[in-house]
Write a protein that binds this DNA or RNA. Sequence first.
DNA 1: CTGGTTGCAAAACCTTTGCAAAGTC
DNA 2: GACTTTGCAAAGGTTTTGCAACCAG
Lengths: 157, 157
Amino acid sequence: MSEERLVALFDSLRSRGERLTTARRALLTALAQADDHRTADELAAEVKDAYPAIHRATIYRTLETLRRLGVVEHSHLGHGPAVYHLADDVHHHLVCEDCGAVTEAAPSLFTGLENALRQEYGFEMESRHFAVTGRCRACAAVASGGASAAVEGLSGA
Amino acid sequence: MSEERLVALFDSLRSRGERLTTARRALLTALAQADDHRTADELAAEVKDAYPAIHRATIYRTLETLRRLGVVEHSHLGHGPAVYHLADDVHHHLVCEDCGAVTEAAPSLFTGLENALRQEYGFEMESRHFAVTGRCRACAAVASGGASAAVEGLSGA
DNA sequence: CTGGTTGCAAAACCTTTGCAAAGTC
DNA sequence: GACTTTGCAAAGGTTTTGCAACCAG
């Protein structure tokens, strides 16, 4: 599966006259093998197994190039480093601010908001770039049950 | 601007047995005067006028303390530094990734998504921390118009 | 007085950049 | 061979931390 996906990616770049360098091949391979997202640091470590010479700076520069080419995207899950994934892997992230758990959310849930923002403000929402923060089911239960009155906070002070 | 708002904030902290240090007073004053968000750096600069001794490290530590006390919040409006505001200052922002323009959005537009995430995942979305990135009307028009037609060619995979 | 806070400096952290060497087509 | 990309090192920007002096209550 990932083999064909990779070949398709390589062909796509080649057909656009883009160079297929070692770093690009290695990064795309690592990203295709990863089922979820990877930080630049994690990618550097994984790539280093096969190609020890590839430098962190190259990781960043190559990821940026691949982003410009529309092949790779990155998102911010909160504090900490950005995470990268192939652009065809479309999903949203729900990040719990209490326990850090990351849930993947279906894009369809966001279309209503996207349409509303487009209609109201002409704003084209790039909703996947930043994660949606909040509290996961478990932490929300703890918060509403115990000391901090999270529910009150929603109505403001 | 609102003297009363500040006094109420100070009283709130005092009544909880929290110390009212110079740094906290200065930061709360600066945040109350600011109509919108401030980065830690901007706050450091503004506070420095009245209290030149206050150090950047203190800015960060104090903001974190005030956050834990429920008085201050921060969010990430894009790449770059976080922005801080008083916790009772509730607003949604649409941030254009191309020109950096910030548009305020009606909170009611988000309730649909909030309900959907709660129902689907039990996830309590912190909509106040939800900086929506994308493209404003003007930049969206330019992008679809022609200049960056290359971006459209990302029919990846 | 006493414990929480601050100032300072230094580091941690993630990411970017200048330049020469290397690689790709 | 021409041009892009990489490796290296060093810096960039933001935020955190150890420790001693300091201050509010």
